[in-house]
């Protein structure tokens, strides 16, 4: 199964290829947590995760074609 993954902001600095949606092959039934660990993204650096434009939790089970965005914490004035 294939999903596409994008890393926003500083998360993309270590993996520039993921600054745009980039395909990732997964096994059926894998969750956001497994995907995050596979990408080597520490939990404390990921503040939000969205799939197809909606916020999801770590237990979300991915399906073919999902568009996943990992977002860091950010703030501003």
């Amino acid at each position: 199964m294939q999903v596409t993954v994008k890393l926003l902001g500083i998360l993309s600095f270590s993996y520039p290829a993921f600054s745009k949606f980039h395909p990732v092959q997964l096994k059926e039934g894998e969750t956001i947590r497994e995907l995050r660990e596979r990408l080597g993204l520490p939990l404390n650096e990921v503040r939000f995760v969205s799939v197809n434009g909606k916020m999801v939790g770590e237990e979300y089970v991915l399906v073919e074609g999902d568009e996943v965005v990992f977002l860091p914490a950010a703030s501003g004035g």
């Binding site: 926003l8 902001g9 500083i10 600095f13 650096e45 939000f48 977002l71 860091p72 914490a73 950010a74 703030s75 501003g76 004035g77």
Partner: peptide, 14 residues
Amino acid sequence: GSIPSLGTVGLVSL
């Protein structure tokens, strides 16, 4: 952590 690297503008895409 994005404040030094992207400034506050890092908020736009997020």
